Amino acid sequence: MLLEDAVVINLKNEALNVVINEHGAELTSVKDVESHLEYMWQADPAFWNRHAPVLFPIVGRLHDDTYNYDGHEYHMTQHGFARDQDFQVAAQTDTSVTFTLTDNADTHKLYPFAFKLDIMFSLQGRHLSVEYRVTNPSSKAVYFAIGGHPGFNLPLGDKQGTFSDYTVAVSPAQIYPSLQLDGPFSDTEHPTTLNFEKPLALKHSLFANDAKILDLQQQPTTLTVTSDLNEHGIALTLQNADYVGIWSPSPKQAPFVCLEPWWGIADSVTADGQLQHKFGIHELHPQEMFNADYAIEFF
């Protein structure tokens, strides 16, 4: 979702050309330098009008878009406000950039905490690394979640194909604990599993009840999207994520899939509305820093 007056940052090496928007620190394009193949979803509003939003300071939805903290009620919509804020460029080279967002008068209306959020992108060969760094500069604890939501074009490459020509493989190949969504909320009372002992064939009906969610429990994991049509694909590698979501907007026949690394998750079905009790919330003590990262290989 590129705004008309948006400022964008370009990272480039011999393999890839990467575009990131200062609005939301959102990755908007990754193209192969030689073939010009576009890997990132291009935000067609008929399906989904974003590319790869940052989810902060919540992941998913709150009951009634509302939470309580320290005796006060606050309202915040799905996935939080960072995706709609203008970040500042703190550092930049030809192949790396650091974006920074700090609390301000607008965020205080939604979220009564001081914070500094740094998002670092680094391009090496055909790999793009993304690091989130949340710092608590205050004298009281900060409660937050954070995550990514990158969308990838399907099909990829010159050959004509469809969404259902692709599979998602997960390494380690095993059966993963999983959370289902009841509406937009986490059904914590009925955990289930997802079998990734072999690749999952993509089809739009898989997402009739929203995202497929793997409970990674911070296990290092790689998700790879490929097809027999050609040699192109993407691989998302996580070192310490709490969860990863796989999503495409059903029942729309959308030509993309999102692989979403999460350090946090939507409210549980039985949430009491208190931010400190929120399912999957992270507590950051005064003057401490939280780090999370993932990497994407484009091939």
Rank of each mutant, 00 (worst) to 15 (best):
L216S: 05
A145T: 08
K203P: 04
P184M: 03
R133E: 14
A105E: 14
L117G: 04
S171H: 15
G157Q: 13
E189D: 14
T167F: 04
Q124T: 15
D103Q: 12
Q180D: 13
T162E: 08
V134M: 08
Q217G: 14
Q124A: 08
Q180I: 07
T107F: 06
P137S: 05
T98D: 13
E189L: 07
K116C: 08
D187R: 05
S186Q: 04
D210I: 10
T98P: 05
A91F: 10
T162C: 09
A169K: 12
A91L: 13
P172N: 00
Y111T: 04
P172M: 04
T135L: 11
Q180P: 09
V142D: 01
A114S: 04
D187K: 04
T188Y: 01
F113L: 05
Q219W: 00
P199S: 04
T135D: 13
S164L: 03
V97K: 00
D158Q: 09
G161D: 05
S96F: 10
A201R: 14
R133Q: 11
E197G: 07
L101K: 03
N195T: 02
V134L: 02
A90I: 13
H204S: 11
K140P: 02
N104F: 05
Q92V: 06
D118W: 00
I213R: 02
F185R: 01
V142L: 03
A201I: 10
V130D: 08
L156M: 12
R133P: 04
L123M: 11
P150M: 07
S171A: 14
A169D: 15
Q88Y: 14
Y111H: 06
V134Q: 09
M120I: 15
D103S: 14
Q124R: 09
V97S: 02
A105N: 13
Q180A: 12
T135S: 15
G147H: 00
A105L: 04
F115W: 01
Q124W: 15
D182G: 07
F152V: 10
L194F: 03
G147N: 00
K212R: 10
L181G: 13
V130K: 12
H149I: 02
T98M: 05
S122E: 12
G157T: 08
P220S: 13
T98V: 11
Q219Y: 00
H149P: 00
F152I: 09
A201C: 14
P199R: 04
K140D: 00
V134D: 02
G151W: 06
A208E: 08
S171G: 15
G161H: 03
F185L: 07
R133L: 13
